[in-house]
Design a protein around this nucleic acid. Structure first.
Lengths: 338, 338
DNA sequence: GCAGTCCACAAAACCGGTCTAGTTCATCGA
DNA sequence: TCGATGAACTAGACCGGTTTTGTGGACTGC
């Protein structure tokens, strides 16, 4: 038999469509007895409301969107992304909400996706990753009225819900650890300079360095292993040579480790390495890499909660604090041997 | 002003709703002149049809689903998954179709998701990954009438669209290469034995070994770095020691490389290593890993095309052939030095 | 005893599209 | 000259829910 509709259920229960709808959504208007009877029939017939009909009636889709403007190549190697999506999706599922995914070329295409989604009522809200300085997406989402949650730390004054990742504290943790080991000349191999969190890390490292009396140099890259390797080569050729390197991603750290070995530097004896991101990779290397570790899955869940709140009350931005990542010390760091 | 509806557009153009719908969908029933006028107004007002209304009318959602029952931890490190999704999504976008993603614990939960999606009309079709032996999902999808495409090579007799990845040919490539180098004792560290492609690889390797006169042993694992490392340790302890190892994933290959180093085996002098999967990882290692490389992004696009065809004609399964992966020889393989 | 409330439900409008069954009018062939 | 044909539209049913409005009966307070 064809898929039953709410009318079939209503007929079988001897009530109107409205009564079934009320019973199903736990709203007043039906007696407990009738509600129970209706729900039993629903259960027995395995009926579920048609998502499109429901979306049309109440104008909410039960879907949120995530657009990634990262190059497809970078996408998989960074476990961060997949972990975040897993957590996000788990958090959304608890609310019966699905996740629509989109991968695009650049920010302009990303904006176009948001415009489409809003015009077609495809999603109830979106998650914003990789905040830029300045970020045109926030204003545009505000203009088209699409609820959103940003992961990071948007410029003050921007009205948008945010799960704040405290990169400053994390950065300070690394700086203090290296300073405590006795390192004084540090090179920071950072990511894309257009990203807010890259700038924040650079800024935080600078100010921590000033406080701790460290000399810090920074190179920005596009997060690729190639540029990470090139930057490492340059950093190790410069005089005076740094005794420790900080990498913004574990992939670059792995590439950097390879370069160091090629150049005859023994890690950690001649050179200490710290990564801003942790994953199986950092654990698997020889030597294994000291890294900042965070529970990305839990972060995703938090973003999901934040987004659900924002979708429910779009006019009042929510601000949440992500837990501060912990430094996991492994084999790649040691006091300098000079 | 509120979002315009098709009625607003019709009013402005001085035609009926039906005419606008026809013009928009490129169907006959309106003159070229009128069509042009309508489309101009649509463009100027930036109107887009409401996805739910459209879905309700024509009962198609413009969405396909992908469920992953892999553990969340494994999910990110394997670049395969992200690459495939990127390609899949790109291929779907060309048809104006979106991708809904779901991560679940196990196959039972995955089946439940399919049932929900079908009952609620949430997606037009789904993509099936990691085929099992036997795979309960195929029969269930058939039962609930949800169009699907499988990636791999389902058991004969199962009616389902498939993008066939020729693991046999790929496996033979590896075996012949190692045989040509002069290796005779090979250990294969495989993935989950419940996966069809794991079995296929094991089988293909056995038969290739028979033909080529190789001695092949196999250990199955859960794809994790931990089990990969343990299996490597066991393989290198056994007598006679294998002169070459084949890993089913690059993550396990990396773990295995580490174990080999710990045990004092120099790669490739004392031991050759080949990986079934290629990614940045395999390139970054020291020594870099010889690996089977395939264009996963293109594979995703192919799966998208296959799914679109299947959704259009659900009763006639489509069978496509994925391109055979190429062996990329790097530093981890060499003739045995005995 | 009776108007006023409240409850439980039915009936119908509505969401914003698609699609079918007419209707009108110009064109064509005999 | 007139019916047949078909192109170009219109009107309205329809998709399957949600939400509003209406209604009969039980219960309340005075």
């Amino acid at each position: 038999m064809a898929r039953p509709t709410i009318a079939d259920i209503a007929r079988e229960a001897g009530v109107s469509k409205g009564a079934v709808s009320f019973a199903l959504n736990g709203r007043p208007g039906v007696s407990d007895e009738t509600r129970k009877r209706i729900l039993e029939i629903v259960e027995r017939r395995q009926w579920r409301p048609h998502s499109a009909a429901r979306a049309l009636g109440r104008s909410s889709t039960g879907l949120v969107g995530l657009v990634s403007a990262r190059p497809a190549r970078t996408l998989g190697v960074e476990p961060f992304f997949a972990q975040l999506i897993s957590g996000l999706q788990a958090g959304l599922s608890a609310h019966g909400v699905g996740l629509q995914l989109m991968v695009v070329e650049d920010t302009e295409a990303e904006l176009e996706v948001y415009r489409s989604w809003a015009a077609e009522n495809r999603v109830d809200g979106v998650v914003l990753l990789d905040l830029l300085t300045p970020d045109p997406r926030i204003a545009e989402l505000d203009r088209i009225g699409l609820p959103a949650v940003a992961l990071g730390d948007p410029a003050r004054g921007q009205r948008i819900s945010t799960v704040v990742a405290d990169d400053r504290a994390a950065t300070r943790t690394i700086a203090e650890y290296l300073a405590a080991l006795g390192h004084t000349r540090i090179h920071h191999i950072a990511g894309l300079p257009s990203l807010r969190h890259t700038r924040r890390r650079i800024g935080a490292l600078k100010s921590a360095a000033d406080t701790l009396g460290l000399q810090v140099a920074t190179t920005t890259t596009d997060f690729s292993d190639t540029e990470g390797a090139a930057a490492t080569r340059a950093a190790l050729t410069a005089r005076p040579t740094p005794s420790a390197l900080i990498f913004d991603s574990d992939l670059m750290a792995v590439a950097g480790l390879g370069v160091a070995m090629e150049m005859g530097r023994s890690v950690p004896r001649d050179l200490s390495i710290v990564s801003f991101d942790d994953s199986v990779l950092a654990r698997l290397m020889h030597p294994s890499l000291t890294a900042l570790s965070r529970d990305t899955f839990a972060l995703g869940e938090q973003v999901a909660d934040c987004l659900m709140q924002t979708v429910a009350a779009p006019t009042t931005p929510v601000r949440m604090q992500a837990s501060v990542p912990q430094l996991v010390v492994r084999e790649s760091t040691t006091p300098p041997q000079s």
